[in-house]
Amino acid sequence: MNTDLDNNISIIIPVYNAGSFVSKAVESALIQPEVKEVILIEDGSRDNSLDICTQLAANYEKVRLFKHPGNANKGAGLSRNLGIEGATGDYIAFLDADDYFLPDRFMAERELFKNKPNIDGVYGALGFHFYSEQDKNRFPELQTGNLTTMPGKVPPEELFLSLLWLHPKVNGYFSVDALTVKRNIFLGKTPLFNDLKLHEDTVFLLQLVSNCMIEPGILDRPVGIRGVHGHNRITKNPENSQSRLLMWKYLYDWSAKASKNKYLQKCFEAYVVSEKIKHVKRIPALKLFITHSFSNRYFLTMGVCFNPSCRIALGNFFAGGILFLKVRIQARFFKNNSFIRNYRSYLIQKH
């Protein structure tokens, strides 16, 4: 594979009801010297997005327009897949239609792909831009100046643990808008995007980092900007009570079908149980909690699953004592999280 990034990256932009924003996204990509093409996937929009995308494709030689058969609406994940299938660059980067890149977006990628030819991808940091004062007031949690990225650099082989919040030191999340990958990883090394309506990017990233070597790039400043407004997909489709449960079920089924290591399957099962407990009444929640505390040791030792489940199943009064006892027992008998140990052993065998 050619490690020279000049004119070698395909930018994939799914477009749905983004007529007010997509031109800025496209132009922010076209100024990057590394960009070979910008692929717009018009996803059955109800506004003027199709007209604008058609005009952009006519105005710029590097812009290509794709549509689903019958102008159907397939969602962001399947739209990105259509773009991946049509891409011709050796590298692929993603951008949402209401977001935009900053200058020198691929500066870290230039160095890392050249000096570390065995890596599969690079991720960076994403910042925020509020399109109006009203949007700023609606999302006060985004006004802290924090970036969407990992809070520290994590070796590629440990990134999966960090995204699951199981790493002993560094846990967090990064955005697909700050990700660049080699196109050939989609030829059997890792799955394409899924058809979930929400959290499809989280599923994709967990599958990606469990299969591929993804290196940290620029984390202390943004390489792109997320546009925050009242029509964001996540705000127009508020998270329903089952969306995270569907996400973890999807990952559990995938890990079983893909013959992934049993430790990964048990880990995903722990998250499934934790979500189920949130959505059932007290007695069924208590039954699930007790059963899986004995049958799945990762559910028992993973505080990110066990602790909230304990409070829901037992109530705060009784849960306090159980969690205190659990901490004492874990400190004595499980000094290192057993899932972390087993996952690292799995990686050694895999590589």
Rank of each mutant, 00 (worst) to 15 (best):
L5M: 09
N7M: 06
V15M: 10
V15S: 08
Y16W: 13
A29N: 05
D43N: 15
G44P: 01
I52L: 15
H68E: 11
N71R: 13
A72K: 15
A72L: 13
G77C: 06
G77R: 06
R80S: 03
G83F: 04
D96K: 05
A97K: 07
D98K: 01
R105N: 08
K114M: 11
P117I: 05
L126Q: 12
Y131S: 07
S132L: 07
K136S: 10
N137F: 04
F139T: 04
F139V: 04
P140H: 09
E141F: 08
E141S: 09
Q143Y: 00
Q143I: 02
G145V: 01
T148F: 13
P151Q: 09
P155I: 09
L159G: 01
G172N: 02
F174E: 00
V176T: 13
A178T: 11
T180S: 02
G188F: 00
V203P: 01
F204K: 02
Q207F: 01
I218A: 04
R221F: 02
P222S: 00
G224Q: 00
G227V: 02
K236E: 12
P238H: 10
S241W: 11
Y250P: 00
Y250K: 11
L251Y: 09
K257S: 14
S259T: 07
N261V: 02
L264Q: 13
V273M: 08
V273A: 05
I277N: 09
K287T: 11
I290H: 08
N296I: 07
Y298F: 15
M302C: 10
G303P: 03
C305Q: 12
L314A: 07
G315P: 04
N316G: 12
F318T: 11
F318H: 10
K326D: 10
N337A: 06
N337R: 05
I340S: 11
I340E: 15
I348E: 14
